[in-house]
Design a protein around this nucleic acid. Structure first.
Lengths: 208, 208
DNA sequence: CGCATTTATTGAACGTCGTTTAATTCGGTA
DNA sequence: TACCGAATTAAACGACGTTCAATAAATGCG
């Protein structure tokens, strides 16, 4: 039995989030159960209910951690030379997704039950992430009429990349095209924010 | 107790798919249980295992039905005048999604367990759908160098719209931008396949 | 028509799940 | 040392997916 002073509550919460992340990484949402997480940190299921409201709450925290790590990865890529920043950001995004596909898909596979809402800190994390990308891309989007227009385009791209990555992770993209997911990502981002006088007609990348 | 000859096996399978769809429409994946579907068609859970391999199999069939209905909706929109076809297709897509958000999200929320693969008929359904959209958009994409390039762009857009719609349905899009989802869809599609001499710099739609 | 065979359907059971709660066990304090 | 409060547990509940022997009904056969 785990002794009372083995871990301070906050440390225990962190341990639980990491254990849950590890389970998700290995077995996905389907294998992510309260009992498995508890066993992994050497406690019984009941203890997790002292740390989190329920399993949904724990999963939201794991997803928050994932968003934080993605934010860090994109921030690093956004520090590259402006000329290659678009491509670097796309590659960083897909590198991150492909490093732990099941942990990534936990982000979008999990849905809160009917009445529940995502907590405010989650919204703040997501906002921070989008803001950082907008800031990194701003030099390439000077022709946009306003910051709001810039943000709208970045949000559209964020959603689009998310669509590509989740279809890829769930193997529903290869059903429909034998193209590396990140090639689709580059295609979308290049065409959406290419600042130069790119003629709109032919797609810039053809890919074998 | 349901009598043996109340329904032929195929009819019973159809009833079960419809009942499962109705449950998903009302309660989403979380509420979609074998017992609830069985109760709805007046049989016991065991009977469903004579008709489908398991719950995953039933869900894949429900999703196949959804794809078929989307295909029909897009085909109708694709029959419009070429000039307005882009916008009509996007609107048809979002009309379809918003008509039954929970049934729609079943398409992408559900993932097969580790070893399992999607059946061939599912791949065929998806292929048919993409092919129809490519055919409808072909007149607008004559500048593309090849049918493969056209298809790649359409697949990218298919994935992008999927990303927008699932983020919207799971209320993760409004967290990040107060923009109607279909406005993002129009933005993406216009910029990706606008055939005319659209300058690449400023986004064509600004939206209040 | 009556009986045997086949087959759809059931009911009960198994193990697992999320969650709750009363009981227990421990560390800190007097 | 004895107590108190807090962390932890064990056990239980209802619901879940799934299996399977038992049962009921329809069919085929004499």
């Amino acid at each position: 039995m785990a002794r009372r002073n083995d871990h301070a509550p906050d440390e225990l919460r962190r341990l639980a989030r990491e254990a849950a992340g590890a389970v998700a990484r290995e077995e996905g949402l389907r294998g992510l159960t309260v009992r498995r997480v508890a066993e992994r940190i050497g406690y019984t299921p009941g203890t997790l209910y002292n740390l989190f409201a329920n399993l949904d709450d724990l999963i939201v925290h794991v997803n928050g951690d994932t968003l934080d790590r993605l934010d860090a990865a994109l921030k690093a890529a956004g520090a590259s030379l402006p000329a290659e920043r678009r491509a670097r950001l796309v590659d960083a995004y897909f590198d991150f997704v492909e490093a732990d596909p099941l942990l990534w898909s936990l982000l979008f596979e999990h849905r809160l039950p009917a009445g529940a809402e995502l907590p405010d800190w989650y919204k703040a994390t997501l906002d921070r992430l989008i803001d950082n990308v907008v800031a990194a891309l701003a030099p390439l989007m000077e022709a946009w009429p306003s910051p709001e227009a810039r943000r709208m385009t970045v949000v559209a791209l964020w959603a689009a990349l998310h669509g590509i990555s989740t279809l890829a992770v769930s193997r529903k993209l290869t059903l429909v095209a034998a193209v590396p997911p990140r090639a689709l990502g580059h295609l979308l981002v290049e065409r959406m924010i290419a600042a130069g006088p790119a003629p709109a007609s032919p797609p810039p990348v053809t890919l074998s």
